[in-house]
Design a binder for these strands. Structure first.
Length: 377
DNA sequence: CCCAGAATAT
DNA sequence: GATATTCTGG
């Protein structure tokens, strides 16, 4: 009950207030009245008797401070259901059976669920590649708790924020020191898992699509004229990443396309139509006021600036364009099989990304603007 | 048989 | 949800 939130005296007060209200209906709600009255009674007794006991707060042990380092408070959050899911990447230990959920884990430092709005499917792309079991990373091991490393992918989303990434020693699981957005750096060689010889038909090790990897992917995509016209093989070749397989690219491409087409067909509740972070003006995306307000600092307005450079992914803003209500499907259209990309009957076809137009971008400078070219990713 | 893409599985 | 693998069909 709220007892936890308000402390006894307050609780009693609340009860009394409640009783007052109920009293009006004592005819209709005799029992309720009775119950509340009893509750008040009970509370009072306890209050007088054992003062504390409930005392609320209930944060008892947050004890575990992340040892030294940061001083920041650690109240306020308490990861509710942090489930360190599988730990596929980085070392296939997998198999995490028991889970002592309770016990609040401290290490929330990395917990930044700031936004989440659809657009960035990419946000979830992990940062580094599997191989190095070597981490031991910064995350302090809290003595008693051993958080299952979620490896790369796990599900932990690593919001690599444009800024901050720099310092930040307390990275969470993934985040290998390397990588960090160091533009070229890693380059073709470094990455990739050499592929352990997993004899048998073991499932392949999960491939983690690091930022760099994804960049290459995007880059290749651009050169090929968009996700719709590029084929896995071509992409793989362009990416020139050693060890990368067609299937992996294919899979990634599939996901990419998926996220690209319809970011989030969800909640369009009547009343509060959420303002999309970006709006389409002419044929370019710009930040909508609402969002701009939040993100102001960076280049106030500037229409042509497409999505923040950081993201690398431009929020595709597939426009609602609610034409006659799609009613009950459109989400599933097994209908036509392979029409390849080419003819589009008026049927669905919501604002396709401007693939064709993209091309231009000079392959060489992947770093800089990069983003802009993305189809709308 | 190779490949792409969709559908499933994990 | 992200990847991997399997299923279809060209």
């Amino acid at each position: 009950m709220q007892r936890l939130k308000m402390g006894f005296p307050d609780y009693i007060q609340a009860l009394e207030e409640e009783r007052r209200k109920i009293q009006v209906f004592c005819k209709e709600l005799p029992l309720s009245l009775e119950l509340v009255t009893q509750a008040i009674e009970a509370c009072r007794q306890q209050l007088s008797g054992t003062t504390s006991e409930y005392n609320l707060n209930g944060q008892s042990e947050c004890s575990e401070r992340t040892t030294s380092s940061e001083g920041p408070v650690l109240e306020e959050f308490i990861p509710i259901k942090k489930r360190a899911s599988s730990s596929p990447c980085c070392d296939e230990d997998d198999e995490d059976n028991e889970q002592h959920s309770l016990r609040q884990r401290v290490l929330n430092e990395n917990n930044k669920n700031s936004d989440k709005r659809k657009s960035d499917w990419l946000r979830s792309v992990q940062l580094w590649n599997p191989d190095p079991p070597a981490e031991e990373d910064a995350t302090r091991k809290v003595p008693g708790i051993e958080l299952k490393r979620s490896g790369c992918g796990g599900g932990a989303f690593q919001p690599f924020h444009k800024e901050e990434k720099a310092a930040k020693a307390t990275e969470s699981s993934c985040k290998a020191p390397s990588l960090t957005l160091v533009a070229a750096a890693s380059s073709s060689a470094g990455e990739l898992t050499p592929e352990k010889n997993q004899s048998e038909g073991q499932r392949k090790q999960r491939r983690c699509w690091s930022q760099d990897l994804h960049k290459r992917f995007l880059h290749a995509l651009q050169q090929l004229g968009g996700a719709d016209s590029a084929t896995p093989k071509q992409i793989r070749e362009l990416m020139n990443v050693d060890g990368l397989t067609n299937d992996e690219v294919k899979s990634h491409l599939q996901k990419y396309r998926l996220h690209t087409r319809r970011p989030s067909p969800l909640v369009h509740n009547s009343s509060s139509q959420q303002a999309a972070p970006f709006v389409l003006v002419g044929n370019i995306f710009v930040q909508s006021p609402e969002y701009a307000a939040v993100a102001t600092s960076t280049a106030s307005r500037e229409v042509n600036t497409v999505p923040a450079p950081a993201g690398v992914y431009a929020p595709v803003a597939t426009h609602p364009t609610p034409v006659s209500q799609p009613s009950a499907d459109s989400i599933k259209k097994p209908q036509f099989k392979k029409f390849k990309h080419s003819e589009h009957s008026n049927s669905d076809e919501r604002a396709h990304h401007s693939e064709g137009a993209v091309h231009s971008n000079s392959p060489t400078s992947s770093s800089s603007t990069h983003t802009s070219a993305s189809p709308g990713y």
